Amino acid sequence: MNEDGERFSVEHAAERFRVHLQLAGIDRSELFEDSDERQQVRVHDTRLPFIPVALANGRSETWVADRTRRRSSIMVQR
């Protein structure tokens, strides 16, 4: 949700994400490559590292669970 409590539009989210990465100075060509061997980076790709990074930075399991909709400590640890 944005600052006004409105849901973000998922329409063209991947394209907007890649544009924002480039605006932030991210220039790793592999992230933007679209070929038989590679797929361009997608917003969904950020899900995997979210939990371990949040926990490593001192966020609680409750904080993580609230944002990921995980219902139990076991699910957060998976």
Rank of each mutant, 00 (worst) to 15 (best):
S35L: 00
H12R: 15
S73I: 03
D27H: 09
F32P: 10
S72P: 14
L31N: 02
L55V: 09
A13Q: 06
S35T: 10
R28I: 14
E37S: 02
V41D: 06
A24T: 00
A56E: 15
V19N: 05
I51T: 15
M1G: 06
I74P: 00
S60H: 04
V43I: 13
T46F: 04
E30P: 05
G25F: 02
E6D: 13
D66P: 15
E30M: 03
N57P: 10
R7C: 12
R70E: 06
I74N: 06
V19E: 07
G25D: 12
E15P: 00
L21A: 09
L31F: 10
A13M: 09
V43Q: 01
T68A: 12
L48I: 09
L55K: 05
R69S: 11
R16L: 02
S73W: 10
Q22E: 05
F17M: 03
D66C: 09
P49E: 05
D27C: 01
A24D: 08
T68E: 13
L23K: 08
D45C: 08
D66V: 12
W63F: 12
Q40W: 08
I51W: 08
H12C: 02
L48D: 12
S72I: 04
R70D: 04
E3K: 11
S29F: 05
L48R: 14
A24W: 13
E33C: 07
H44E: 04
N57R: 09
T62G: 00
D45V: 09
R38H: 01
R67Y: 13
D27K: 10
F32A: 01
W63Y: 08
M1E: 14
I51V: 15
R70I: 00
D27R: 08
R16C: 03
R70V: 07
M75G: 14
F17S: 01
R70F: 11
Q77E: 14
D34H: 06
D4Q: 10
R7N: 13
R28Y: 08
E3G: 10
F50H: 10
E61R: 04
S35Y: 00
H44S: 05
H20Y: 06
V43A: 02
E6C: 14
R28D: 07
R7S: 15
E61F: 13
L21D: 05
H20D: 02
H20S: 07
T62F: 09
D34K: 12
V10K: 06
R78D: 10
Q40S: 11
P52L: 03
S72E: 06
R38F: 08
A54F: 05
E15A: 12
H20T: 15
A54I: 04
T46Y: 04
A56H: 08
R38S: 05
R47N: 02
A24V: 03
R59W: 14
A56S: 14
A14M: 00
E37C: 01
V41A: 11
F32H: 05
F50Q: 00
H12Y: 07
N57Q: 08
V10E: 07
E11S: 13
S35C: 07
E30N: 03
V43W: 11
Q40G: 10
G58V: 03
M1Y: 12
D27L: 04
G25C: 04
Q22S: 14
T68V: 15
D4G: 01
D36R: 07
L31D: 05
W63G: 01
R28T: 06
R16Q: 03
